[in-house]
Structure formats: structure tokens, C-alpha cells
């Protein structure tokens, strides 16, 4: 059950570029884009998921830099397909003007891959990293 601080707001105020905090209080990235349900005639679109990762951030940048950013993101993804990391709207715990807290731990989120890769491949190899 998502708790919203305000009942009427805009995407730039509360959602876009906001920091995601997981259930352990650790940062889990930022909202780069929003996924809305496809609009039917009588039914306005509804927020279904938060999207993060370079393939979501690229289109918002626009221009050559945006497509270049998106291409890098696509190549970085170990899993094929260029759909960005998706965090279902049901996972959102609380939204206020400071951050968006989630119900899940960041390890279970899509966007965990790049962090785990750095952790294991680089930082994990340097002595003294565990304490």
C-alpha cells in the first residue's frame, strides 16, 4: 500500500530524478523514467512502474548524447533486450519530497547488476573491503 505525501502533484516534483531508498535504507539509484499503462478511451493512464538505468535516462536527454548514452546502456546490460530496469509500482512504500522508499531490498531489484559487477570484479578484489 503506497503512502503518498501529496494527493496531487507533478512528475518533476515527486517522481522524476528522485532517489530510491530500499527497505534497509540503502540508496538504490534514481528514477530515470516512469512507465504508464497504455491509455484506453475511458481509462486515463496509470503509473505502473518506475524505470531506472541508462536506457531509461538516454531518451530523456535527447539529441546525439542521449542516443549515445542509451547505446552504452544497452551494451552494458548483461541480459539482452533494452528495456530499462523496472521497479513495479506495488513496491513503492512511501513517496515524499525528499525520496522514494521501497518495500524490497536493493539486491532484488533489476538495477542491482552493475553494482554487483563492480563489487565483485573491482572493489571486492582490493584488500580490506569487507569490514
Amino acid at each position: 500500500m503506497t503512502r503518498w505525501d501529496e494527493d496531487e502533484f507533478t512528475a518533476n516534483d515527486l517522481l522524476l530524478d528522485r532517489e530510491l531508498i530500499d527497505c534497509h535504507g540503502m540508496p538504490a539509484g534514481r528514477v530515470d523514467d516512469l512507465e504508464l499503462s497504455d491509455p484506453e478511451p475511458g481509462e486515463p493512464p496509470v503509473l505502473t512502474a518506475l524505470l531506472c538505468g541508462p536506457t531509461a535516462f538516454g531518451p530523456r536527454l535527447g539529441g546525439r548524447l542521449g542516443t549515445w548514452w542509451q547505446a552504452i546502456g544497452r551494451r552494458l546490460r548483461l541480459v539482452s533486450g533494452s528495456y530499462p530496469n523496472r521497479i513495479d509500482a506495488g513496491l513503492i512504500d512511501h513517496v515524499d519530497r525528499l525520496e522514494i522508499t521501497l518495500l524490497a531490498a536493493r539486491e532484488h531489484l533489476d538495477s542491482y547488476r552493475f553494482r554487483r559487477w563492480t563489487e565483485e570484479k573491482i572493489i571486492g578484489r582490493i584488500p580490506g573491503d569487507t569490514t
Binding site: W4, D7, E8, T10, A11, P44, L47, A89
Partner: peptide, 16 residues
């Protein structure tokens, strides 16, 4: 602009 719309299941949908 978004507005919260109560849904049948008691939860709220964030509607465009």
C-alpha cells in the same frame, strides 16, 4: 500532472 484515484482494492492508483 498526476492525481491519486482510490481503486477498488483499497489501494490508490497514481493517475495521469
Amino acid at each position: 500532472h498526476f492525481r491519486l484515484r482510490p481503486q477498488p482494492g483499497g489501494s490508490q492508483a497514481c493517475q495521469l
